[in-house]
Design a protein around this nucleic acid. Structure first.
Lengths: 132, 132
DNA sequence: TTAATTCCCACTTTTTTACTAGGATTAGTA
DNA sequence: TACTAATCCTAGTAAAAAAGTGGGAATTAA
């Protein structure tokens, strides 16, 4: 049940991008701001880009930017692509419908899953900055 | 954020013990009921014993039993010892007070942690059986 | 053309998880 | 007392996942 470093660093990164919203931020800037290596951050932010959380501008003077206003992006949206869709057990995929005997605590895991997602989707990046 | 098999199997085991509440159940019975090997279950249940979730009777005709009525044991109580206190990040230990700059999403993780624990402590083993 | 940047992908190392194994100890029963 | 069924204790191993490194191609502003 521990969050991966990918997920934690990912939150650091988007928090920084939220601060800089409106400007492009390069990976090297993110790296110095967060203390994570550039190479590792690159991989993390690539995932965020694939999932339309951030947009990139290539080439010199390029960088990354949030695809939407920090108020319109939730922590859950950021974490899911970085953390295997936040699935806590294998059998709870998406719909929470499967119901076999091997998976007897099904309902428990489904509810927990829903709980976690609901909370994480209730927090926007904007709030993350303000709450600090 | 995935639950370990130890935690999952632990829940299987206590669910079985809850069904059998009042009688002793041996590890070999638990093993056949849950499909987990005896040796692995032994280790899991040893942790539960250390944490006073179950009590053991040694020797022939021995076995395990829940230390309390299934209504008085929560899923959270079972999971915490099996899942590193359910801590989702290292810096959120117990009280949720530390607040340094490296850990900027502190409050987020604390709230998530509290959320998870509150839910899991709201479900008793009794309910787990009934909900099935 | 150069420098700063994203992009792509393969690889390695470290850590954790999951499980196996052997045998000591305890207690009921014949 | 001997046997047997059980818990208890601890070390080891194999597999999987996480975490991080590294090299270099493609893109773009100046």
């Amino acid at each position: 049940m521990k969050l991966s470093s990918k997920a934690r660093y990912g939150i650091f990164a988007v928090a920084q991008l939220a601060k800089n919203y409106g400007k492009l931020t390069s990976v090297s800037e993110l790296a110095t701001a967060t203390g994570v290596t550039e190479k590792y951050l690159e991989q993390i932010i690539a995932i965020l880009k694939q999932n339309d959380i951030v947009v990139a501008k290539r080439g010199s003077m390029g960088g990354y930017e949030l695809s939407k206003h920090p108020q319109e992006i939730t922590v859950g949206q950021v974490l899911r692509p970085l953390e295997n869709n936040l699935e806590i057990v294998d059998c709870v995929s998406g719909k929470c419908t499967a119901h076999n005997s091997k998976c007897m605590a099904q309902k428990l895991w489904c509810n927990l899953y829903a709980n976690i997602n609901t909370y994480l989707d209730s927090v926007t990046l904007q709030q993350l900055l303000e709450d600090k």
